[in-house]
């Protein structure tokens, strides 16, 4: 058995093990990276098994049972999950500021049938699920702004990007600069919960600097708005959101309230 712990690939060790074997089974999580590298390199006269030839499942996590089966061990017949069981997807916390943000966004977009909302990676991606179903698509970190820009360029109105404060720092800034440079008609809603909440509430590098960054990129000051996502400010937030959606240029709305888990922790 050879355990590859780091790249580049240990060519000598791989050649050595390949010489001693008739077949190799490559067990790796994610994409069959090592397996693809091995095919055509060390597979002269020996068979390479793995995710690519179906000996291991092409998708999904590698469970102990999947690996056991690939090694030829019998996998016992087990009980099934009763039909009555339904999926229990995660949802946003009780008191989460994103909930109020999606509520005002949804209401502002209710009569805008041609709108599209592009979002990003974070707790707020859960806004794609019921009861909100606010998000039309999500790809990777920072893509909300670039996708919204692409949609706006292609004529989608209103085009909305929803991105969290730390994702904005990570890879949203460049996309926004592009939109500023081209005066793209779109609305960027930055959900600023003052934390990288999904991974344990680390502080975002943009903490306390979001407006400065947005203005520094060149967004017009009169089209940068800051709101507080709270039930008692819902009506005014809806009204502001409607106004920004009607603006024929670029607007940024920062919806700021501390992550409820951080707020609870701070209180304790």
């Amino acid at each position: 058995m050879l355990r590859i712990g780091q790249y580049p690939m240990p060519a000598d060790m791989l050649t050595d093990i390949a010489r001693q074997c008739k077949a190799l089974l490559v067990v790796e999580e994610g994409y069959p990276f090592v397996e693809e590298m091995l095919r055509g390199v060390v597979d002269m006269g020996l068979t390479v098994h793995g995710r690519l030839d179906g000996v291991l499942p092409r998708t999904g996590e590698l469970s102990a049972d999947a690996v056991a089966q690939a090694l030829g061990f019998d996998v016992p017949e087990v009980r099934g999950v009763p039909d009555v069981v339904v999926a229990r997807p995660p949802s946003m916390c009780k008191g989460c500021p994103h909930v109020d943000s999606y509520l005002f966004l949804n209401e502002a977009l209710a009569d805008r049938e041609t709108s599209r909302v592009f979002s990003d990676i974070g707790c707020y991606t859960l806004g794609a699920l019921p009861p909100f179903e606010s998000i039309n698509t999500c790809v990777d970190m920072g893509a909300s702004i670039t996708m919204a820009k692409g949609a706006a360029d292609a004529g989608v109105r209103p085009a909305v990007a929803v991105i969290g404060d730390s994702t904005f720092t990570h890879s949203g800034i460049t996309g926004l600069l592009d939109a500023v440079a081209e005066g793209t008609p779109m609305t960027v809603l930055i959900l600023d919960n003052e934390a990288t909440a999904m991974t344990g509430a680390q502080e975002s590098m943009a903490h306390g600097r979001i407006e400065k960054i947005v203005l520094g990129l060149g967004v017009e000051p009169e089209h940068l708005h800051v709101v507080t996502p709270l039930k008692n400010q819902h009506e005014q937030n809806v009204a502001l959101m409607r106004r920004t959606l009607e603006h024929p240029g670029l607007s940024v709305v920062v919806s700021r309230r501390t992550c409820i888990q951080v707020a609870i922790r701070n209180r304790e």
Binding site: V78, R79, G80, V81, P82, V84, V85, V86, R88
Partner: peptide, 11 residues
């Protein structure tokens, strides 16, 4: 209770 049933393949 429903979560117990979800993991019956492990039993």
């Amino acid at each position: 209770p429903m979560e117990a049933l979800r993991y019956l393949p492990y039993l």
